[in-house]
Design a protein around this nucleic acid. Structure first.
Length: 323
DNA sequence: AATATAATCAACCGCAACGAC
DNA sequence: CGTCGTTGCGGTTGATTATAT
């Protein structure tokens, strides 16, 4: 995909980097920055294969690469680590998980990423950033000031509208996309938020038709995306059981996601919040049948109603299986 | 076809936590 | 107990690509 960026092509990505992509370090050591070359990747992969993903700084001290340990680690974590879903858009399920977890944890991208096999904190962060920009544009609301220290904190009250951190707004975007990460430039024509309500069903239909499965999803059949994540959150928060013939449903999701009945077979117990999307999310007809779908549902909920939920224990060591 | 705008992605930076000494 | 080096995280930037006008 854009891997070519790492090679030739674009010039230095750092304004502080010299023309040749190198930067002087204090001791006169030349420290290279900018896009990674394929040869550098090979060296880094070989290093990790031999020594494991640690002692990053020794890569430079040993003269293997003119890169900072920080840069090496980042390259490994974000691009070279096995089983990464590189070049693959977030599936509807992944989007939903990010939305729910962000509502719970705030901007704890690394933590959220542990729930998404093959995704890095950078992926999640970029995904969320894109959503925020889109929301801001749709709502004609400036993004929160960069000095806003609410970043990283849990969302504020849902009554403070428009609040871009509001989970219910996430629902808007989620449904705007038909639960799919499609470019939503068409939404720029929607004059105001009110018309979103009427536009959503049509958009869902339109976008659902365009949805495509993730062709590069590396998840092997023996290890569906989440089946090794018997995470309390994912268990407690029922995920939708989507019909296998749901339009645009990414393969690998649905029943296969939660073998052993992890998927909620029916409505959640009374009194328990249903953080999962309503099962008819991708069912276009259900939108008409049940106009009060997830967006309305979440809008009507007090923002603190999930406060009682215990933060889930640390997820299983992500990718620790590799090393 | 050219231009403008939005989306995506890779990589950097600063900061904080942690462990070794 | 303080210092230093390493690691990890979150925020940000800028280039590239895709789409709309």
């Amino acid at each position: 995909m854009q891997e070519a960026r790492g090679g030739s092509g674009h010039t230095s990505s750092s304004s502080k980097t010299n023309k040749n992509g190198k930067e002087e370090e204090g001791g006169g050591m030349v420290l290279k920055k900018g896009p990674w070359m394929a040869e550098e990747d090979e060296i880094l992969i070989e290093y990790v294969r031999k020594h494991g993903p640690r002692d990053w700084s020794s890569i430079r001290s040993k003269g293997l690469l003119p890169r900072s340990g920080k840069s090496c680690r980042l390259r490994w974590v974000n691009k070279l680590k096995p089983d990464l879903k590189t070049g693959c858009k977030f599936s509807p399920e992944e989007e939903r998980i990010v939305i729910d977890l962000q509502a719970q944890f705030g901007n704890k991208w690394a933590r959220i990423a542990t729930y998404l096999p093959g995704r890095t904190d950078n992926d999640v962060k970029n995904f969320w950033s894109t959503r925020q920009k889109r929301l801001a544009r749709i709502l004609r609301t400036p993004l929160p000031s960069r000095s806003n220290k609410n970043h990283g904190k849990l969302p504020l009250s849902s009554h403070q509208v428009p609040n871009l951190e509001d989970p219910s707004l996430d629902r808007i975007l989620f449904e705007e996309n038909g639960g799919c990460n499609q470019k939503a430039t068409k939404m720029t024509q929607i004059p105001d938020i009110v018309s979103l309500d009427t536009a959503l069903p049509l958009l869902e239909l339109e976008l659902a038709m365009e949805k495509e499965p993730c062709l590069s999803d590396p998840a092997p059949p023996s290890q569906p995306p989440f089946d090794h994540l018997p995470h309390p959150l994912l268990v407690d928060l029922p995920l939708p059981v989507l019909p296998e013939d749901a339009p645009g449903l990414s393969p690998g999701f649905g029943d296969a996601i939660f073998p052993g009945g992890l998927a909620c077979p029916e409505a959640p117990p009374e009194g328990l919040p249903f953080l999962g999307m309503d099962a008819g999310h991708d069912d276009i007809e259900s939108v008409d049948e049940h106009p009060g779908t997830s967006t309305d549902f979440f809008d009507d909920l007090p923002a603190d109603m999930f406060d009682y939920l215990e933060p889930p224990p640390p997820p299983p060591p992500a990718s620790s299986t590799s090393w």
